[in-house]
Amino acid sequence: MMLQRPDADAMLATAGLDGEMAAGTRPGLAAALAALENERGLSPAGRERALAQFEDNLARLAAIARDRADHPEIADVVIDRPVFILGLPRCGTSILHALIGADPQVRTPLQWEVAAPSPPPEADTFDTDPRADGFDAYAAANFTGAWADVLKAHPIGARVPQECGMMLETAFHGINPSMLFSLPGYYAWYRDADTSFGYRVHKMWLQHLAWKNPRKRWVLKVQEHAYHLPELMSVYPDAVLVQPHRDPATVMASISRLIEVIRCVSFEEIDRPALGRELLHLWHDGQVRSMAWRKANPQIKVHDLRFKDIVADPVAAVRGIYAHAQMDFTPDTENAVNSWWAANPADKHGQHRYELADYGLTREQVESVYADYIAAYRDYL
Rank of each mutant, 00 (worst) to 15 (best):
P177N: 09
A153R: 10
R159N: 15
H173D: 14
A146K: 14
M167K: 05
C164A: 11
V150G: 03
Q162I: 13
Y187R: 04
G157A: 00
L183V: 03
N176V: 10
K152E: 06
Y187E: 09
T195A: 14
A193L: 02
R191Q: 12
Y187G: 12
Y187H: 05
A193P: 10
P155C: 02
D194R: 11
A153G: 10
D192H: 12
Y190I: 03
N176D: 08
G145F: 03
W189S: 05
G157W: 01
W189Y: 14
W189T: 11
E163C: 08
A146G: 13
R191G: 09
A188T: 13
Y187P: 04
I175H: 02
T170Q: 06
I156S: 10
I156Y: 10
M179V: 14
W147C: 14
M166S: 14
Y186Q: 12
A146E: 15
H154I: 08
E163M: 00
I175D: 00
G165I: 15
L151K: 12
T170M: 05
G165T: 15
M167I: 00
Y186V: 15
S178I: 02
S178A: 11
P155K: 05
I175R: 02
E169F: 13
P155L: 08
D149Y: 02
L183S: 00
A158S: 09
M166E: 12
E163G: 09
V160H: 03
H173R: 11
N176R: 15
A171F: 07
Y187M: 04
L168H: 07
G174N: 06
V150I: 14
L168P: 01
G185I: 09
Y187Q: 11
R159T: 05
S182L: 09
H173P: 07
F172T: 02
W189Q: 03
A188I: 10
V150W: 01
G174Q: 12
E169A: 14
P184I: 00
Y190L: 08
T195E: 06
H154T: 01
D192C: 01
A146W: 11
T144L: 07
G157K: 07
T170R: 01
G145P: 04
W147I: 15
F181E: 01
R159I: 00
T170F: 00
G145L: 04
T195R: 09
C164R: 02
K152F: 01
A171C: 04
P184L: 03
S182M: 09
P161S: 05
G185T: 15
M166C: 11
T195D: 07
A153V: 01
P155M: 10
F172G: 08
F172Q: 07
A188Q: 11
I156Q: 14
Q162T: 12
A153W: 00
A153N: 05
P177H: 01
L180I: 13
H173W: 10
A146D: 15
P161T: 15
G185V: 15
Y190A: 11
P184G: 04
H154C: 02
S178M: 06
Y186D: 08
D192V: 04
D192E: 12
I175W: 06
L183M: 06
F181I: 04
P177M: 02
V160W: 07
G157Y: 04
L180S: 09
G174D: 05
D194V: 00
R191V: 07
